[in-house]
Design a protein around this nucleic acid. Sequence first.
DNA 1: TTCCGCCCGTACACCCCTGTATGGAATGAC
DNA 2: GTCATTCCATACAGGGGTGTACGGGCGGAA
Lengths: 206, 206
Amino acid sequence: MTIQYCTGMARRHLTPQDWSTAALRAMAHGGVAAVSVNALAGELGTTRGSFYWHFKDRDALLTAALEVWEEDNTTALISELGDITDPRQRLTALFTTALGQHDINGLEPAIVAHADHPAVAPILRRVTDRRIAYLTDLYTNLGLAPAPARRQAVAAYAAYLGWLELRRSASDIVPEVAITGTTATAALEHLITELARSGEHQAKPE
Amino acid sequence: MTIQYCTGMARRHLTPQDWSTAALRAMAHGGVAAVSVNALAGELGTTRGSFYWHFKDRDALLTAALEVWEEDNTTALISELGDITDPRQRLTALFTTALGQHDINGLEPAIVAHADHPAVAPILRRVTDRRIAYLTDLYTNLGLAPAPARRQAVAAYAAYLGWLELRRSASDIVPEVAITGTTATAALEHLITELARSGEHQAKPE
DNA sequence: TTCCGCCCGTACACCCCTGTATGGAATGAC
DNA sequence: GTCATTCCATACAGGGGTGTACGGGCGGAA
């Protein structure tokens, strides 16, 4: 995620990973349109000749970057939570981890804004499907029947997406959403516990 | 929202409103980058000469279109709900009305994706601020104290934003979110009642 | 040393978009 | 009919991005 500026005379060769991460940062900041080979080359301290050696064209970079996003924010995240046995702790850890990515803030709104793009649609479809399936499985482990578990999963995922969007659009107006991590404020914990408690609420009504 | 194609020989003169609505539709479909004077002119059956007579430049169109969005989806929406006296009915009517805009689906993700744009930032700030303030006032009328009312308003607004985003990105995967209006499915009502009930839950815990 | 494959820099043509300048059609006033 | 205003069409210059062709440095192998 850090840029390798040319500090000495010997500059390391760039990898497709470098281009992908740079593309994700540009996409998170200025949308899909900001992913221009020109701008990324200047940002990485190289020229477009390097790019067209590693990638076929711009669409190949988009798909590669989105696959990195899929891997880091879905596949790796789910596998990391496999150690936690208690489903309630898994749920809390899942949301706190997912909401902790401040550097790539605004990436998901940018991706969703171009949901019709041929390079975006299939990956966005896979990510959404897997995330909702994981949440459904999680709420099922919490004691919900399949149908309510899926409804709860959709609601929880929508709340998570909106939380990201709100944090990007108005973190100064709504300062509660800007803070996360271990020092989460009352509003963030309110949302998470609300999503966890509502599932419990239906499983065994008090 | 409907395009005035040149059906006869006498074509009506275009208004700035026509350009604004066309810009909003393009923005909802392809993001801010899709708002090009060339494409809109072709879509409206005219040339760029017409555009530059009504508007100073492209940024003027963006601000005008976003002000139309602000008026239609915030100012007019709030004033329409003034007739309903019961705050709970107001809350339900608010979400069902706000979620009923299927034609401009994906507009808010596109706007949020360019939250840093100088033409987008101030309007997005006003809209977010007013909506959260309205929701906070609504939850206060439901019996919540100021601080919990604001927390609940932020959570409810985040759920609404995420619902829109989810409906745009994966309406085929999650068919529950695609349907709305009077025949809202169980998932949609689940989210709304969940947001309404959670406020009630804190006001007078059972 | 010489050669070869990897990686990058440079130059070129092409396309799309913006903004402006200018001409022209249509409409109403007189 | 003449004229002025409103609205749109056309032409041009400029800029930025993409994709490609080609050349050159550079390190390892024979």
